[in-house]
Every structure is written in structure tokens, then in C-alpha cells.
């Protein structure tokens, strides 16, 4: 469903402006899509648990600064990057521990971390922009080269999907998010699974920080991490991950990110007024979500109002089709 919307949007923008389907736009589009995709994947890990990580965007702002500080302190760039990723993991671990062991809802825990991390960035940088540490190959591989971000994003999507769908760990994420009591009853280590998800989410957020830092070539301590995080949550949810837990899809998050990236890039190209852009984007997200949610409700026959009946009609058409095919098969 959401993939169709994405394709429709891409066709619309291509027809509207020849610039959309051009080689030069491919790299621009990929710089829109890549960070949202990785944020989306990061959030799927926690959303599937029925949790949320609001702080991942602020980890993104902090991480390239940490590389600069560690590099200034005498560490090599690669070592600084590795240590930074470990620090990101610790931040995720703290989020997880406060949520799991102290019983604070993750929305509140990570809301606290957002402000704390923002404070650390501002205090340590004095609010001044700096250049990222490291140039040349490292910088190019980590986002400097036009297509490196999207390659990383796709690679992370593949690994994330495999982890999520093909391993015991991934199965347990869905199990815990679906029915925590039953999972614990079956002996799944609920707390451990949750903490690992927060760790993964944070590390991915920190990694996107490198990619965008090296791509843009300067680090702004005032960057709004929250909005980036919300793009990630939006990509995940548009793709079919439930905020209530138990249902997540990495591929969906990837497609959701492409839709959001196409929207942003497309609106830029067709020259929508910068002020109207946010409004249109907001309405587009709402529209896509209403359709998605109502389709889901129609499946259980609870859809409300006009959208509900529209969705039910759509579903009937679909199931009607499937029923016919099945009958035909039986008839043969």
C-alpha cells in the first residue's frame, strides 16, 4: 500500500518536472532518504517493543562532536569514531536501564535524555559550529561521497531486516512487544531484549550523525534532533510498524523513508513555497496514516466513518479477488 503511494509520488514528480528523474537529483534524493531510513530502522527496534526513543536525534547531533573532542584529545580519527559509537551504546544502555529497571516509561526517559544531551552539546561546544574531525577516505566513506550515505542505509536495512526477521533476538522483540507477560512466562529475558534494542537504536543514531556530519562538512550544535527523530518514527509508522508494539517491519521503514524523502525532495524541485512545504508534508503524512490505520481497522471490521467504509470497500475488493482465485483453484 505505502509502496504504491511512493511509486505514485515518484511518477507525479517525474511528470511534473524533468529534474526529478535526473542523475544529479539521484544523489540529492539519496541524501534525503538515507538518514530517515536509518532513523526509521533504529526506531523499529524500540517501537516494536511498544517503546519509543526520542533521544536518537540528539545522539545524532552529539556523536560527530564527540569524535572532534576525542580527536583533539589525541585519539586517531578511527579510534575516536569507535569510542564514540561505544559512548552512544552507553547512552542507549542508560535509556534502557532507566526504562526497564526503574520502570519509567520510555517516552519520559528519553525525553529527559533529549534535553540532557542537548545541554551537553551546547555546553561543550559553546554553541559554536566546528568542522568534523577527519578528511579524505574516512570522511568520504562515512558520508562525504555522494552515494555513501544511501549505501550505508541500504546495508543497515539489510542487516537490520535479517536481525529482525531471521534471528531469535528479532523474534523475541516482536514477542515482547506483542505480549510481555507471555514472553516472560516462556522464559524470554524481557529486560535484556529491551536494553539491547535501546542500545542498537542509539548506536544507529550516532552513526547517522557521522554520515550527515561528513556530508555537510560542518557541525551545528543547534541542529534540531527531535524533528529528525520524528522523521524516523514517521517512516517506521508509515511503513506499518505499530506504536503499540508487537508489529514491526524494517522493509516498511525503508519504504516509508523513501516516501518521506521523495516528498521532501519533490516539493523542493517543483518549487513549493518553503512555508507551505511543512504544511503540505504534514497533510501528506496525515493522509497516508489515516488510510493505513483505517485499512488495518477495516480488516477487523471496526473502521469508523467515511474512511472506514472506504477502507472496508477496498478490503472487500481485495479479499473478494482472493476468494475468487481460491475458488477457481479448487474448481480445477
Amino acid at each position: 500500500m505505502i509502496a504504491l503511494i511512493g511509486v505514485a509520488l515518484a511518477i507525479f514528480f517525474s511528470v511534473y518536472s524533468s529534474a526529478f528523474a535526473s542523475v544529479s537529483n539521484a544523489s540529492t534524493l539519496s541524501t534525503y532518504v538515507a538518514p530517515i531510513m536509518i532513523f526509521g530502522i533504529a526506531e523499529v527496534f524500540v517501537l516494536t517493543l511498544g517503546e519509543i526513543d526520542l533521544s536518537v536525534g540528539e545522539v545524532y547531533v552529539l556523536s560527530p562532536f564527540l569524535v572532534v573532542y576525542l580527536n583533539d584529545a589525541g585519539l586517531g580519527v578511527i579510534a575516536a569514531i569507535i569510542v564514540t559509537l561505544i559512548i552512544c551504546a552507553v547512552i542507549g544502555c542508560v535509556n534502557g536501564l532507566i526504562t526497564v529497571r526503574l520502570g519509567v516509561p520510555s517516552f519520559i526517559t528519553t525525553l529527559g535524555t533529549v534535553f540532557a544531551l542537548k545541554g551537553i552539546v551546547l555546553l561543550s561546544s559553546n554553541g559554536i559550529q566546528v568542522n568534523p574531525a577527519g578528511t579524505g577516505t574516512i570522511a568520504n566513506v562515512l558520508g562525504g561521497w555522494s552515494y555513501s550515505s544511501i549505501i550505508w542505509a541500504l546495508a543497515i536495512a539489510v542487516v537490520g531486516h535479517t536481525l529482525f526477521r531471521r534471528t531469535t533476538f528479532g523474534l523475541h522483540i516482536t514477542a515482547v512487544g506483542g505480549n510481555q507477560t507471555a514472553s516472560a512466562e516462556a522464559g524470554v529475558k524481557v529486560g535484556v531484549v529491551k536494553i539491547w534494542c535501546f542500545v542498537l537504536c542509539s548506536v544507529l543514531g550516532g552513526f547517522v550523525g557521522f554520515l550527515d556530519g561528513y556530508r555537510i562538512g560542518s557541525l551545528n550544535p543547534g541542529t534540531d534532533g527531535l524533528i529528525l527523530m520524528f522523521y524516523g518514527v514517521a517512516a517506521a509508522v508509515i511503513g506499518g510498524t505499530a506504536l503499540t508494539g508487537g508489529r514491526g517491519t524494517m522493509i516498511g521503514a525503508g519504504i516509508g523513508a523513501i516516501v518521506l524523502g521523495v516528498l521532501q525532495d519533490g516539493f523542493n524541485i517543483i518549487g513549493i513555497n518553503a512555508f507551505a512545504y511543512q504544511l503540505v508534508l504534514g497533510l501528506a503524512i496525515l493522509g497516508a496514516m489515516i488510510l493505513n490505520v483505517q485499512l488495518e481497522l477495516a480488516r477487523s471490521g471496526q473502521g469508523a466513518g467515511v474512511y472506514g467504509s472506504l477502507a472496508r470497500t477496498l478490503m472487500r475488493l481485495r479479499t473478494g479477488g482472493a476468494g475468487r482465485r481460491r475458488r477457481e483453484r479448487v474448481a480445477k
Binding site: 507471555a182 516462556a186 524470554v188
Partner: peptide, 20 residues
């Protein structure tokens, strides 16, 4: 309390005793 609604029948049967 025993089952995870969203998981398939076989994943529920093998939950935390998965064949790997």
C-alpha cells in the same frame, strides 16, 4: 496469557525454545 497474538502458530509453539 500464554500466547503472543502477532506471532505465527509455530513461533508461539517454539517461543524461547527456537530451533536455530
Amino acid at each position: 496469557l500464554a500466547l503472543v497474538d502477532q506471532l505465527s502458530v509455530y513461533h508461539n509453539l517454539f517461543l524461547n525454545r527456537e530451533t536455530t
